[in-house]
Amino acid sequence: MNYFLKRSGGLVVLFFGITLISFAVIHLAPGGPTDIYSQMNPKVSAEAAEKMQKLYGLDRPLLEQYGSWAKRVFFFDFGRSFRDGRPVTKKIAAAIPVTLLMSVLSLLFILAAGIPLGIYGAVHEGTRRDGVLSAVLLAGFSLPVFWAALLAMSYFGVGLRVLPVAGIHSLFFDEMTFFEKIRDVAWHLILPVSLSALAGLAGISRFMRANLIQVLKENYIRTARAKGLSERKVLYGHALPNAILPLLTLLGLSVPGLLGGSVIFESIFSIPGMGRLFFDSVFARDYPVIMGVLVLGAILTLLGNFLADWAYAACDPRIRLGEKF
């Protein structure tokens, strides 16, 4: 119990440390939110730009700005976007579902295709087929995604006209029935999800293959084979469960990434997700939104670490009991 209290106390300190550093870094980056107004527009006078600096409180010392920000965050008030005046929490909440839907679907897709491919590669290790498969996966991994995405959009969307080019909804989505809506979203997600899975596929399947090859060389596999079990049972009953375990750790680490989104994909496919929100905010120096997204990221990462620690502690008494030994 003592261990958890200490850990959580440390987390709070760590959290504010992270926010202080992020706050300092983005404010010290040259430029400011009022630049987008005065973007070389002769109608915007220097006085007006100064007035806006004052309104946003940007003329005060950095530490004071951080203090008032931290105070508000303590009461879960992330402020309003400089760019459009909407509450930061609202903007983030609007972007999360799309990003989450896309990344979860693409992760499922990666697992559904990557694990079997990895097994296939491990079983046929060193054969010609394994070589071809490796080469294809490597090619998929190395393709610049934006280029592949544009080719796919051009081929399936413009050439064949079987899939929509961009967006996640049809134009007059609101006039559709419930089932039409589901079909419409699914239709729009095919290209972005399969393309974003393309790059991840190579990693997971290679990882799976390497693990399985390792496990297949273990003594207990030899024992299983020696006692006359079918190759099928050996593979799926004994080898696979052991080979999949490390994969779970890898998945646990990818949880914060699920909400990160991808700027490239979201821009090319015109999907209003987290990646684009963050990217646009950075370029507009929209500090409240940037900080909101960073805080979310910090919480997820810390939570992920905490859960990992907890899981290790649950499994390994040496960590839990610490100095008593």
Partner: peptide, 8 residues
């Protein structure tokens, strides 16, 4: 208190 860039 109106953040307009066009006051000039």
């Amino acid at each position: 208190s109106v953040p307009t860039p066009y006051g000039g």
